[in-house]
């Protein structure tokens, strides 16, 4: 019995050691997002609370905590309360398999990439539950839009993952990173990286694909009826998902914790820092896209997902596999 308890406590300690930095970085990343956005549009952005406005997110969080939570009388109360919890939990549990360095990962499971994909495909439930339980028109329309959008873009993300897996021969995320020691997959699979990036924007409901919360048509989409801490949980979950997508892109295409060149000043920097640099790089790209690109129309969004990305990434699967087969490069035989 003693051993069970010690296992339990070490695991809890490890989970906290992972989750608390993730939550803090989510708060910081919101600030970074707003600063980059303001920088592009020649505004100042949040710059009042703390040095460079760094504590803005904390101030916002404090505000949300002390606001009243309003549950609409006609809503389905249990589902209404569960929805933000589901979003937040799903956004956080997927961090368990992200490898920060060799042997520096919470759960080094065989099917790591499938786990990530499965959890990110469950993310749609938080939105659809919230939209339905609010029992009001705008949230429902937002939820329906969002569900259709996320399911569509998941398909192309899945096919892109197949491309990477063909080059690796394993579903383990650490193996995927180690396979990129000589060449990051962003070079041979560059078109897939671009499509992954755009699909990740759509999957996380970021602009230019933020139709679920298009404020001009749907007020705030599925979040319309939410207030206080419950709204903040949706919001945190969304940003945690964005960070996760950046981490996924870094692991799949940018060599995870590996340094760009394996010579002295670069490989002296520890692996987790490299991963964080890469996540930040991708996140700043996300923020730049948000600041510059106008919102898509809904039929354009669907057309892009089904008629352009899906056929192209399928074609690339054929291309990659025939290339690997012809030059006898298939691994893991």
């Amino acid at each position: 019995m003693d051993s069970y308890f010690s296992i339990f406590f070490t695991e809890v300690y490890k989970i906290l050691f992972l989750l608390i930095p993730v939550l803090i970085s989510v708060a910081m990343i919101v600030w970074l997002d707003r600063r980059v956005w303001a920088f592009v549009q020649k505004r100042r952005g949040p710059n009042v609370v703390g040095p460079f406005g760094l504590f803005q997110s904390l101030a916002d969080a404090l505000k949300y905590i002390f606001k009243e939570i309003i549950i609409p009388a006609s809503s389905n109360k249990l589902v209404f309360v569960l929805a933000p919890v589901v979003t937040m939990t799903l956004a956080l549990i997927s961090w368990a398999v992200i490898p920060f360095d060799e042997d520096f990962v919470l759960a080094d499971i065989n099917v790591g990439i499938l786990y990530l994909f499965a959890v990110s495909s469950l993310g749609v439930y938080g939105i659809i539950m919230g939209g339905w339980a609010s029992n009001s028109k705008y949230p429902f329309l937002g939820a329906i839009r969002s569900a259709a959008q996320m399911v569509s873009y998941e398909v192309s993300i899945g096919v892109i993952i197949i491309n990477v897996l063909l080059c690796v021969g394993s579903l383990n995320l650490s193996d995927i990173v180690m396979a990129q020691q000589n060449l990051w997959f962003v070079i041979p699979l560059f078109p897939m990286f671009v499509i992954f990036f755009i699909s990740a924007l759509a999957e996380t409901n970021r602009p230019p694909f933020d139709l679920p919360e298009a404020e001009a048509e749907l007020v705030a989409g599925y979040q319309t009826e939410y207030s206080g801490m419950m709204y903040a949980m949706f919001w945190l979950g969304e940003y945690a998902n964005i960070l996760l997508m950046c981490a996924m892109g870094a692991v799949l295409f940018l060599g995870g914790w590996l340094s760009p060149i394996d010579i002295f000043p670069f490989n002296a920097i520890p692996g987790p820092f490299w991963l964080i640099f890469k996540i930040l790089f991708l996140f700043i790209l996300f923020a730049l896209v948000k600041a510059t690109v106008p919102r898509y129309r809904y039929d354009q969004l669907m057309k892009l997902g089904w008629k352009i990305f899906l056929p192209f990434s399928l074609f690339y699967v054929v291309l990659t596999s025939s290339f690997l087969l012809y030059f006898d490069l298939l691994l893991g035989k």
């Binding site: 499938l114 786990y115 994909f117 499965a118 495909s121 469950l122 998941e154």
Partner: peptide, 9 residues
Amino acid sequence: MIMLIVYVG
């Protein structure tokens, strides 16, 4: 995992 992805997702 496939069960999660296909049926639930």
